[in-house]
Amino acid sequence: MTTLTFKIAEDEARSLRAAARRARLTLSEYLRRQIRMNSPEAQPVGKVKCRHTGAMIFAPAPHLTPLTSETVREMLADFP
């Protein structure tokens, strides 16, 4: 995963950190979700039947690859 660094005012940083804590997310995940929510390509999440368990699970977005163990490891790499 790529790391982005940018500068913001201290009060903005405090506000973002507080919002992430309220959402019970890391700051990175909070910002990623905010960007996706405001993206014009955002669409509702679908559901599919798991071929292993038969349970209904979230379907991958049409433009994304399915979730794998490797992608989960990448997403959790910056988790405290």
Score class of each variant (00 low, 15 high):
51 R>D: 11
28 S>M: 06
21 R>K: 14
53 T>H: 08
80 P>C: 06
1 M>P: 08
38 N>R: 11
39 S>C: 07
6 F>Q: 12
34 Q>S: 08
15 S>N: 10
21 R>Q: 12
1 M>T: 13
21 R>G: 08
20 A>L: 02
49 K>D: 12
28 S>D: 12
55 A>K: 15
80 P>Q: 09
34 Q>A: 09
14 R>T: 08
71 T>F: 06
17 R>A: 01
25 L>G: 11
60 P>W: 10
64 L>I: 08
76 L>V: 10
27 L>C: 04
58 F>M: 11
69 S>A: 14
30 Y>H: 15
3 T>L: 13
13 A>Y: 14
47 K>G: 00
33 R>S: 03
8 I>L: 11
62 P>F: 08
68 T>M: 01
50 C>G: 02
17 R>T: 08
62 P>T: 00
19 A>R: 08
22 R>Q: 12
79 F>R: 13
37 M>H: 03
7 K>M: 11
66 P>D: 05
20 A>S: 06
72 V>Q: 06
52 H>A: 01
50 C>A: 02
67 L>Q: 03
43 Q>I: 03
44 P>Q: 04
17 R>C: 04
53 T>W: 05
65 T>F: 02
41 E>Y: 03
69 S>Q: 07
68 T>F: 05
70 E>A: 08
2 T>V: 00
24 R>V: 05
39 S>Y: 01
49 K>Q: 10
25 L>Y: 05
10 E>G: 02
19 A>P: 09
58 F>E: 10
28 S>K: 01
8 I>T: 01
79 F>T: 13
23 A>N: 10
39 S>L: 01
20 A>E: 11
64 L>G: 00
61 A>N: 03
22 R>W: 04
42 A>M: 10
15 S>D: 07
18 A>S: 13
54 G>C: 02
26 T>W: 01
22 R>F: 09
79 F>Q: 04
78 D>P: 07
66 P>L: 01
3 T>E: 05
